[in-house]
Design a binder for these strands. Structure first.
Lengths: 339, 339
DNA sequence: ACCCTATTTGTAAGCGCTTACATTCTAATT
DNA sequence: AATTAGAATGTAAGCGCTTACAAATAGGGT
């Protein structure tokens, strides 16, 4: 029958080891500063008591939490999951812990979560994309909170970004599509409001059209949220137009997978009747038939680099530096020349 | 030029509003208890100062964090991502925040993370599966930490589990395979060490074999970790045996997808030459060709129910109750009768 | 008017830790 | 043996909040 006893404290350890709390604290945080004999006595008290330091108290006293917060749109998206996993591995290697929340793509929720993470004493923050209310950045700056933005690279912004040039990458892909003879393009995009990745990818398509003397305003765009089914629906929609496109450029692989499946259901052959492209290069992209031509993004590397940049900002107090990562077009079978 | 000023405290708000800190605290935590006029004065001070409560201080004083910790093997796995997303939505609805760490399937890391989460003052914990060192459960019990296990349902355990009967579910699937005339079965399993899901699924196959007078010990089992490539390799391995199996039962969809792809690469037809089954019913399962016959698991519901159970334990101090969720076999084209 | 109860607000004691500063101890130098 | 620099340890003041308890104020019944 175990006694109802609350967790042992530093004080308990100190008493048991016959030293002061300061010494115990030093044993735990800066072992060099205490002589071996004492340290051993303290450590054995720690283990016999099963002592674990109380984090809240430590944070309060030290004004340092060794915690980094990350807010992602959703965990149900392989691209964030992968990048975040790498991010977490890197910060863990450096002695930090990760706090994640997901905002479900809702800006108000994201704002609340940012405040929560700050209140929890996060030493730094990882955010996805630059598109959010300026007051949030003001708040972060006023609090001197080291912050890094990932998945998007816009060097002009104050907040350093570790990511890739969504616009450029999509432009390159669209240029390739056009070079294959396609003139009737269409786009299926994620919701662009508050999402610079989605927004800039569409801009990229338009850039490529403009460069090749296709009127950018003629591009049919269907915006929808991140689900296979929505991609399918959008595709059906696009195909019901009188003038069918010959190439459908999707803002991400998930929507593209939906498009390809819908094509199959409608008896439309990909790429013979219509080409489809994706973006992200997640697993689904190479599993589906035909496999998707898409843009490969180095998610793991991005996560790692973002972690390094953020930790440097935290530890040196520097302003941080943006870093652009390369993307590359992966050619598979869902894109072919126009006929 | 903004002054370098640290975050405003309760005290600053109190002074600005001309009340005591106790009143401010009450305004924030229990607004009913303070009269409207005062409350408004306080609230306006809060907004003009841009006050955000300091979490560590609050946790320390209140001995309550409104935080729930979850430790999952990896975020790079759709099944955990999905269940966790639902879990987080539910606890958020009830005013709690989620702290996630991933252990990368490493027991030592998991143990450390459990201690970290406890030290951080988590009000409750979500763990995946029952297989871990008893001292961890002892620690949790000694600390009176409300804990729920998900993804596995084993009612005999002390820690309540919200999940499904992995053994039973796999047994049903294997029985179905056998009924289709297959006698030469083989299994590709996840690492069973420390993973009751993987372990019990294999047991389920053996149960079904035993019931149908097939010698359970004859089942070839290849254990490998959770990656498409590993599934492919395992499949190749299995097919190089002199006596090829006619049905390969995989411990999860990811391994099954690897198996199917490898079959294609080897010119082996699925299901004509060999049947393949999965487990989990993730998106990949219906996207691949042929789509996988697999076991559908209600991940979202499990996440939600686990959240409800855990919160009830936290708030009522009750011991908590296990809950079994139903799974169902989803028949698609990767499984057919033996020829 | 007066007393009593109920409501609202204030006072102050921690929560468990870190760390600046003070004190004690060790041992090398004179 | 006396002196003293330097290492090891101790003392105690917070960190920003909650909450038990005390005090003040308001309202209702006589």
């Amino acid at each position: 029958m175990s006694k109802l006893r609350s967790a042992p404290t530093l004080d308990d350890v100190a008493r048991k080891a016959g030293v002061s709390t300061a010494t115990v604290s030093r044993c735990l945080n800066d072992p060099e500063r205490v002589v071996t004999a004492t340290r051993e006595r303290v450590m054995s008290a720690v283990t016999t008591l099963g002592y674990t330091p109380n984090f809240a108290a430590r944070v309060m006293a030290a004004k340092r939490s060794f915690t980094i917060g990350a807010i992602i749109p959703t965990m149900e998206n392989a691209i964030f999951a992968r990048g975040l996993q790498a991010f977490q591995e890197e910060i863990h290697r450096q002695g930090y812990t990760l706090l994640v929340s997901s905002s479900a793509y809702r800006p108000e929720d994201e704002e609340e979560q940012i405040r929560t993470l700050v209140a929890r004493g996060a030493d730094g923050l990882l955010l996805i994309g630059h598109d959010r209310a300026p007051r949030i950045f003001d708040f972060l700056e006023q609090r001197k909170m080291p912050t890094v933005v990932a998945w998007s690279f816009i060097p002009e912004k104050d907040t350093p970004s570790i990511g890739f040039n969504n616009r450029q990458a999509m432009k390159a892909l669209a240029a390739k599509v056009i070079k294959l003879g396609h003139t009737r393009l269409a786009a299926i995009s994620g919701i662009r409001q508050g999402n610079d990745r989605a927004r800039l990818r569409i801009e990229g398509i338009k850039d490529a059209m403009e460069m090749n003397n296709l009127p950018p305003d003629s591009l049919p765009i269907i915006e929808t949220s991140y689900e296979i089914e929505n991609g399918a629906e959008a595709f059906a929609n696009l195909m019901s137009q009188t003038e069918r496109p010959t190439a459908v450029l999707c803002g991400n692989d998930v929507l593209a997978v939906g498009a390809v499946r819908q094509a199959q259901d409608m008896g439309i052959r990909v790429p013979d009747d219509v080409s489809v492209t994706g973006f992200d290069d997640i697993e689904l992209a190479r599993i589906i038939n035909p496999p998707l031509t898409t843009v490969h993004v180095p998610h793991r590397e991005m996560g790692r680099k973002a972690a390094q940049a953020l930790i440097e900002m935290i530890e040196t107090g520097s302003a941080g530096q943006s870093l652009e990562l390369p993307t590359e077009i992966v050619s598979r079978q869902s894109l072919d020349r126009a006929n």
